Simulated scan of single mutants.
Amino acid sequence: MPAPLLCVALILVAYLLGSLSGSLLLGRLRGVDIRTQGSGNAGGTNALRTQGWKFALGVVLVDVGKGALAAWLGMRFGPTDDALPPNALAYATAFAAAIGHVWPLWHGFRGGKGVGTLLGGLLVLWPTAVPWLLLVWLLVLVASGYVGLASVIAVACVVPLAWFIGAEADHARRLFACTAALLVLFTHRGNLQRLHAGSESRFERVRLLRKRT
């Protein structure tokens, strides 16, 4: 297969893989659609709030796993010539999987927010960035109690990491970092609006910086 067609085919496969929503697939086994419960989002946070930690853990494993698999497919089966920079196609397939997660073909284009799937791609393509992302996410979460805010800030921190810690010539990584940050900002726009309005839900149990009464 010609290299351009192979690239398009791998990106399409990655999108279709990303369209397999962990919460909706596992929800069918339980007879529930979490898009009708809680916040209405088909992601890990809403799964935790509405179905419990065991269900949410399964959701996270599926959503992270498909991002990792999409990235691996891009690395393993992408063209080996010099038509693309190293790992460029793998970053593209990882991002395509995140797009599939947010707008899944198999589930009426109503999916999750993409953070777990992007994390899976990073685990394969840039694993040294993952501890920093998780550290920032955890610090913001325990300081504020807002999962959405923690997710937005954590993914946004990948952008300066790509510029100041990553290889200078790794333009694919930098583009992935910027587009991932923009995607997460877009998918969490409702959370940010509720945060501004003072109506965003908090995880009080993990919040350390709270007023004592």
Rank of each mutant, 00 (worst) to 15 (best):
T80C: 04
F95T: 01
H101N: 13
A94G: 13
G100F: 15
A92N: 11
A90E: 02
A96R: 01
A88K: 00
A94C: 11
A96F: 06
G74H: 00
A97Y: 07
A88D: 01
D82M: 15
D81L: 07
T93K: 03
T80V: 08
W72R: 03
R76L: 14
P85C: 04
L84Y: 12
A88G: 00
M75E: 13
L73Q: 09
P86T: 05
A98Q: 08
P85D: 10
M75C: 15
A90C: 02
F95V: 02
Y91T: 08
G74W: 00
D81I: 14
A98N: 13
D81Q: 09
A96K: 04
A98H: 12
P86D: 13
Y91E: 06
A83Y: 09
A94V: 10
I99A: 15
A96E: 03
A98G: 10
A96W: 02
N87S: 12
A71G: 07
A90K: 01
P79R: 02
V102W: 11
A90S: 11
P85I: 03
V102P: 10
D82C: 07
A70M: 07
I99D: 00
G100C: 08
A92F: 07
G78C: 10
A94K: 05
R76Y: 09
A97G: 11
L89M: 02
H101F: 14
W72L: 14
A90I: 03
G74L: 01
L84S: 03
A90M: 05
D81G: 14
A92W: 08
D81Y: 12
A88E: 00
N87R: 15
P79D: 03
